[in-house]
Design a protein around this nucleic acid. Structure first.
Length: 561
RNA sequence: CGGGGCGUAGCUCAGCCCGGCUAGAGCGCUUGGUUUGGGACCAAGAAGUCGCAGGUUCGAAUCCUGUCGCCCCGACCA
């Protein structure tokens, strides 16, 4: 492709709207342009990369027996009402104004609709159906460039099986395909497993890329591979030491002390000598949750421990329940259920609220004074704590979710009546799995992992071109003739070549554009070297430059690419 | 939806607080010329309903009200 005839609008300056690196680079390198919040147009160079990503996905999906579909983006609302998902999606679902249609945010309903009746026998199963298609979600706040858009390309796959054993097989196949896809795309990623108890033992795994631009927080152990969403991640943190002697309980006047920080300052004590109290309402009954020092209650873990409905108590409710307002609540003589974080186990000589405004109690020995207390893991794992599995150090960081595989079960088959006959002639619901990959997210994550201060650093197989051929002074006949020949020859050799044949652009301008666009190899053709029958080969990643004989160019390129 | 910021030329931004001539700069773009190994130089030029609507005023990019859009933080994320 000739630069002089291509639409590759590169930008010198950092666009106002872009904040994260991948977004900045996409816009600066002329890969994408924004149309509206969360809505992007892919420009030719960017779309070339999108197609390469899609090709890889398609190959790996076909390799596990997937059959490619193209389902409509426009769906009858009625089908979505039958599964209750018009309500479940709420404002996220786009509605068409002048007909009873919705824009599909995913396609479980449509898969189930087509499977119904058409798959009538166990002999028709299993099936793997997939598509690579545009999805629509009315995100309340699109952000981070193409990472969270209102319209995006998704590979979504669905398995149809007779039973859970079949589903296990389909799920494992997708796990394998996903690893192959992300490996081939050259991404550094990891897999977060989460067994969601509420779904009846259903399994789900998320494929994540570490990035500050991410929306999920995960805890990850490099050594053993333990990875979990921070909401559920477990860690080993030091218990507070049990002191030999427990003091007696004593009450202290603490006027205007409402937080752990204020209490520590007021009494000149360490945070680890205090226990913070929070009151929740669990199935209409109050419950006191005790945390060490300033640790926050992890409400996801709390919910998992308690089951049922859990919500923080309203400020107005606190006094009636405990006798005090927030800041003075504590476990001593608290008349309802008390649970505490594991770190407080065996704690003594602790300070906490007195259930009387402006008073705290010291000398609390939890074993002695709060004997009915139950202990659970209720805190959020923090960076640097020990891995629950292997004991080495946990990393807690932000991550981008690239893909998600999970076992659906019979939710949609039941709702839509998607049944088949088994060997015994008995009707059974088809067991489904659902598997998604964000195509643009692969793109963005690749950029997040492959750039420097000059621009993008592409590598096979996603690079839009293999070679960036740069004619330094195209008005010089020797240079232009040599470039034209190289362009033809390299293409004939099977390389994808971007040819900067611009007449006017100066050398420096072309170099900087080439570094920004980031093709793996730059082939620089200038008068000086050409006089000696040589050209310069530059490795974009290492910056290494070699002046080589034209006659040896082919073998050198073969080594490099 | 809550909090914050921004909307002036293709891009980045100044001007706005304190209203006043034909609304500016840099980059980019066009034409001519000189250049061509790390974002060249000279000369001439094109380009903006100052987001939109209403109001105040002799006069509004500037003040007021409303509205739309975009970005960031939070909430949300099947």
């Amino acid at each position: 492709m000739r630069v002089s005839r291509s639409f590759i609008p590169t930008l010198k300056e950092v666009p106002n709207d872009a904040v994260i690196q991948s977004h900045i680079l996409m816009i600066r390198a002329g890969l994408v342009r924004q149309l509206s919040a969360g809505i992007y147009s892919w420009l030719p160079l960017g779309y070339k990369v999108i197609r390469k990503i899609i090709d890889i996905i398609r190959e790996e999906m076909n390799a596990i027996g997937g059959q490619e579909f193209h389902f409509p983006g426009l769906n009858p609302k009625e089908i979505w009402e039958q599964t209750g998902r018009v309500e479940a999606f709420g404002d996220i679902l786009f509605h068409i104004k002048n007909r009873e249609y919705v824009l599909a945010p995913t396609h479980e309903e449509i898969v189930a609709y087509h499977a119904k009746g058409a798959i009538a026998s166990y002999k028709d199963l299993p099936q793997i159906w997939y598509q690579i298609q545009t999805k629509f979600r009315n995100e309340p706040r699109p952000r981070s460039g193409v990472i969270r858009g209102r319209q995006f390309i998704m590979k979504d796959a669905y398995t149809l099986d007779r039973d859970d054993a079949g589903l296990d097989v389909g799920y494992a196949l997708h796990d394998k395909a996903y690893r192959a896809i992300f490996d081939r795309c050259g991404l550094r990623y990891f897999v977060v497993g989460a067994s969601s108890g509420a779904m009846g033992g259903s399994k789900s795994e998320e494929f994540m890329v570490k990035s500050d631009a991410g929306e999920d927080t995960v805890a990850y152990c490099e050594k053993c591979g333990y990875a979990a969403n921070a909401e559920v991640a477990q860690s080993v943190a030091a218990l507070i030491p049990h002191q030999k002697e427990s003091k007696k309980l004593f009450e202290i006047s603490t006027p205007n002390v409402h937080s752990i920080d204020e209490l520590c300052t007021f009494l000149k004590i360490d945070e680890h000598e205090t226990a913070k109290s929070r009151i929740y309402i669990h199935d209409a009954k109050p419950i006191l949750v005790l945390m060490l020092g300033n640790d926050e209650v992890n409400e996801t873990k709390l919910g998992n421990v308690l089951g049922g409905n859990v919500r923080p108590a309203h400020p107005e409710e606190l006094k009636e329940i405990s006798g005090a307002d927030a800041g003075s609540i504590g476990p001593i003589d608290f008349p309802h259920r008390i649970i505490a974080d594991n770190l407080l186990k065996d704690g003594n000589n602790l300070y906490s609220g007195a259930n009387k405004n402006d008073f705290h109690i010291g000398g609390i020995d939890l074993r002695r004074d709060v004997s009915k207390c139950e202990y659970f893991d209720l805190r959020t794992a923090e960076n640097g704590e020990k891995c629950i599995r292997c004991g080495s150090t946990l990393d807690v960081f932000k991550a981008i979710e690239l893909g998600h595989i999970f076992k659906l079960g019979t939710k949609y088959s039941d709702a839509l009546g998607v049944l088949y006959l088994d060997e015994n002639g008995k009707e059974r619901p088809i067991v489904m799995g659902s598997y998604g990959i964000g195509v643009e997210r692969i793109f963005a994550c690749f950029l997040e992992q492959n750039y420097d201060e000059k621009g993008i650093i592409w590598k096979k197989p996603l690079n839009p071109f293999d070679i960036h051929l740069i004619g330094l002074n195209m008005k010089n006949e020797m240079v232009s003739k040599a470039c034209e020949k190289l362009y033809i020859d390299l293409i004939a050799e099977g390389y994808e070549v971007l040819f900067d044949d611009r007449l006017e652009a100066s050398a420096g301008f072309k170099f900087n554009d080439a570094d920004l666009l980031g093709m793996p190899i730059q082939l620089i053709v200038g008068e000086k070297n050409l006089k000696d029958g040589k050209v310069e080969v530059k490795n974009r990643k290492t910056g290494e430059k070699k002046v080589v004989e034209l006659t040896q160019l082919n073998s050198i390129l073969k080594e490099l690419i």
